[in-house]
Design a protein around this nucleic acid. Structure first.
Length: 308
DNA sequence: AAGACGAAAGTGGTTGA
DNA sequence: TCAACAACTTTCGTCTT
């Protein structure tokens, strides 16, 4: 936990939960997401085998976010020139030419793409692990020639979207779209294409993964939030969730939970943060009421309000 | 007047013949 | 490759608070 944040600015509670993977600090008392999208400060050593503890002294960790995996060697250093005699100097130029040739179109493409990837990733403040994963996916995509016929940016966005999903830090297509400037449709298309071609299996994202983020932007308290998750679990048991958009379900669960806790939000407000329409919320909401027998509770609430 | 509700038509994607 | 289909959106009129 970084030292900067010790208390929750909302309720003053010190019971904070730092979720490194998601880059979030969540107040257990009031549910406020204090440092959403915070960068992950932990180092990534996972490229190394842990059997040999000394190994980490061998250099910086290999990383996919450097276009040559951080292992590149420059042949063209000027200082070396003066150490060489005439013959060797020819050799030097030959080597340099060779080096130039192998820095193929692929590598140049990668260099550009990874710059773009970093840009978008930092705009969304995604954890390093996700950035790494998406860089890996993009690299594979380039090697398989999947970028041909598609814009580099859209493939980058697709890779990021996939990586987010794999790490259970889902971002909506809308968010990716805003960050990358690529149309939602296009991102979805390349995302599907790339994952299919690379044989990457991605489970449908869990609606619960969206709750914390949505609840935070709606400024709902922790009780409401955990209630929403509870509703979600019941919905899953009633098989209301399969085939539906996870964001819509999450939004509806939050909407109901907010009603039940007397922190009513309009359908529009909830719809906006979840990136769905009111109609979808209504449909999910209705299903929730039907299947989970929540009508009574809602009616109770209404009566309670009338009394006042 | 704003919010909630629901019907109807349209969109983009999946599936199965 | 095409048609049927499900989920979701857009739009719009009506009812409720």
């Amino acid at each position: 936990m970084p030292e900067l944040v010790k208390k929750c600015p909302e309720c003053g509670g010190i019971n904070l939960n730092w979720n490194k993977e998601r880059g979030e600090i969540i107040c257990r008392d009031c549910g406020l997401v204090i440092e959403e999208k915070m960068v992950d400060f932990t180092q990534e050593w996972r490229e190394f085998d842990s059997e040999d503890g000394e190994r980490r002294r061998a250099g910086a960790p290999m990383t996919y976010t450097q276009y040559d995996h951080g292992l590149g060697t420059e042949v063209g250093q000027k200082a070396d020139l003066f150490k060489l005699g005439g013959k060797d100097r020819n050799k030097f130029f030959r080597l340099r030419k060779w080096q130039y040739r192998i820095s193929t179109a692929i590598e140049r493409n990668l260099k550009l793409a990874l710059a773009e990837l970093k840009r978008v990733s930092s705009y969304l403040k995604l954890p390093k692990s996700v950035e790494e994963e998406s860089a890996r996916i993009y690299t594979l995509a380039v090697q398989r020639g999947l970028v041909r016929g598609r814009s580099m940016e859209s493939v980058v966005a697709g890779a990021l979207y996939a990586a987010c999903r794999r790490h259970d830090v889902p971002r909506t297509l809308d968010e990716l779209s805003e960050a990358s400037g690529i149309e939602k449709k296009e991102i979805g298309r390349t995302y599907r294409f790339v994952t299919r071609e690379l044989g990457i299996t991605i489970l449908p994202s869990n609606p619960a993964d969206y709750i914390a983020r949505f609840a935070s932007s709606l400024k709902l308290n922790a009780e409401t939030q955990s209630n929403a998750i509870e509703i979600l679990e019941r919905a899953q048991k009633a098989e209301l969730t399969s085939g539906r958009g996870p964001t819509g379900i999450a939004a509806a669960a939050l909407y109901v939970a907010a009603l039940l806790h007397g922190e009513k939000r309009t359908q529009r407000e909830v719809a906006d943060v979840a990136g769905v329409t009111e109609v979808t919320i209504r449909n999910r909401y209705k299903e929730l009421l039907d299947e989970l027998k929540l009508e009574k509770e809602i009616k109770k609430k209404k009566k309670a309000r009338k009394k006042r």
